[in-house]
Design a protein around this nucleic acid. Structure first.
Lengths: 220, 220
DNA sequence: TTCCTCCTGACAGGCTGGTGACACGCCTAA
DNA sequence: TTAGGCGTGTCACCAGCCTGTCAGGAGGAA
């Protein structure tokens, strides 16, 4: 679900992190020291979240973080701290939106905090239509309320909301709703459009899902 | 951050402790022997954590601790032991939730252990849900009551409570509940969710453990 | 009018998650 | 040693939801 960059010199810790994060459906990019990390993570957008050991062999994790920030990398950072007295010095980072975990840690704790960082920094995309789609909960919020969608309904609405005011062709909507390339009948799409309309109405949405006959659908 | 009581007869050790703890933003109250300690720390709630030298001139630190406990002082205690064979006799205290450090020590080690004791005994993780998780007793308290959890149940609830209101994916919950990476069947998680729900109800919790179908679970 | 597209209500099948029960291993008390 | 309690993991079964499809009908285009 997200790209996680790791900078950790201890091979065992690296392995635990990598396996745990991959099990949780994340892509993992590993580096073993500050130099490798700068090479791998300096590009803005290259990762969604970083896990950085404070005590690297060639650098202080916090200095590395500073350097990455300077180069335009704004992904949130989860610091790993060894069992010494860095607690107080870390607290400033914590307040800044990043987080830290003391070693030894349970991998579950890491996963929960990574999720929290991703949520914090990946705000719900507010479309120009005023619809707020929440990919966490497969829900749609409007000024009037909220409605829960099924995964397929969500994908369809997301495809339409990605280009509000523009007509999305039926084939494109099908491709969005069934990304695995499943063959569904024409009528199935119509059924789902109807369900999405019902959900939008439930949510008290001012936005209408309008049919453009012979072409596709558009959000207005 | 916390009020730390010190009972130590060696002036150098007292100074190191005091300076280190104050740098780490703790309030420090000092006493030099058992008599002063009883006077200063007997009142319940007067300190958040105690650092007590085992070898005091007028008392054994463990007896002092016992006396303080009797008078209602339940702050956790970090014992300082000289380098002799007290390890085994101390271990009983360790199991009881307290901790010990052998002299000579690094001040960083003291700070970390004080933090650990504070975390352990002052968890009151002010979750916006109103749930209070007690990692010492694997219990959950709510406005309505208290329920004891098994370790696995506790880890699962803690993972959810760490991000109240946010959906925690099934895989993340599994990773939190079984941090050793054990493979458990999908249904096992469902069973544990059911058990946690039952415990929450037992505790009269106003918080609900809600399923987000196809995604995970959320505390509300 | 006729044809075609789309809307609607309904339904069956499959899947996910909830529930109750049980077996196993470990630990403790008798 | 034995019995019982507890924590744990799994199973079978069930209910409800999601999904895909169908038939029938409404309404726009030619």
């Amino acid at each position: 679900m997200a790209r996680v960059g790791i900078c950790e010199d201890d091979a065992d810790v690296r392995r635990v992190l990598t396996e745990g994060l991959r099990l949780a459906d994340h892509d993992v990019v590993v580096s073993r020291n500050g130099r490798e990390a700068m090479a791998a993570f300096a590009a803005p957008g290259s990762v969604d979240v970083l896990i950085v050991d404070i005590g690297l062999p060639d650098a202080d994790g916090r200095d590395l973080c500073q350097a990455l920030r300077t180069s335009g990398q704004h992904a949130p950072v989860l610091f790993l701290t060894a069992l010494d007295g860095v607690h107080d010095r870390i607290s400033g980072f914590h307040a800044g939106g990043d987080d830290y975990v003391a070693k030894p840690f349970a991998i579950g704790e890491i996963l929960v905090r990574v999720d929290a960082l991703l949520r914090r920094t990946r705000p719900a995309p507010a479309t120009p239509t005023g619809l707020v789609l929440d990919p966490e909960r497969f829900s749609v919020r409007t000024g009037g309320g909220e409605a829960r969608l099924t995964p397929t309904e969500y994908r369809i609405l997301a495809a339409l909301a990605a280009a509000p005011g523009a007509v999305v062709r039926r084939r494109a909507v099908v491709a969005a709703g069934w990304p695995d390339g499943a063959m569904v009948s024409e009528n199935t799409l119509d059924s789902y459009i109807r369900r999405v309309r019902a959900k939008l109405e439930t949510a008290g949405s001012p936005v209408e899902l309008v049919t453009v006959r012979g072409v596709g659908f558009v959000l207005r």
